[in-house]
Amino acid sequence: MSNDNEKDWPLWEVFIQSKRGLDHKHVGSLHAADAGMAIENARDVYTRRGEGNSIWVVKAEHVHASNPDDAESFYDPADDKVYRHPTFYTMPEGAKYI
């Protein structure tokens, strides 16, 4: 394998939907020359054990992440606002995936 970054294939993030109606979940990443190859590679690397019925891939460089240094100002303010949680309802029996 070449270590020359110029020649390496770009990195792609892979999202798999395990069942119709559910979310596509991030499962990992891989290298591929283009989107078509990324989907085939994802099929070969991440759906070997019947994990999926739909695949999304996105170039890793297009994923923008929040900065860990912002964590306090981003997330802590939500900690004391329990009224935002829908915990005051009784769940209907048999409701799944909520």
Binding site: M1, L30, E40, D44
Partner: peptide
């Protein structure tokens, strides 16, 4: 395999 992804593809 030349890359991990192809190694998997061929063994599949």
């Amino acid at each position: 395999g030349p890359v991990l992804e192809e190694d998997m593809a061929l063994t599949n």
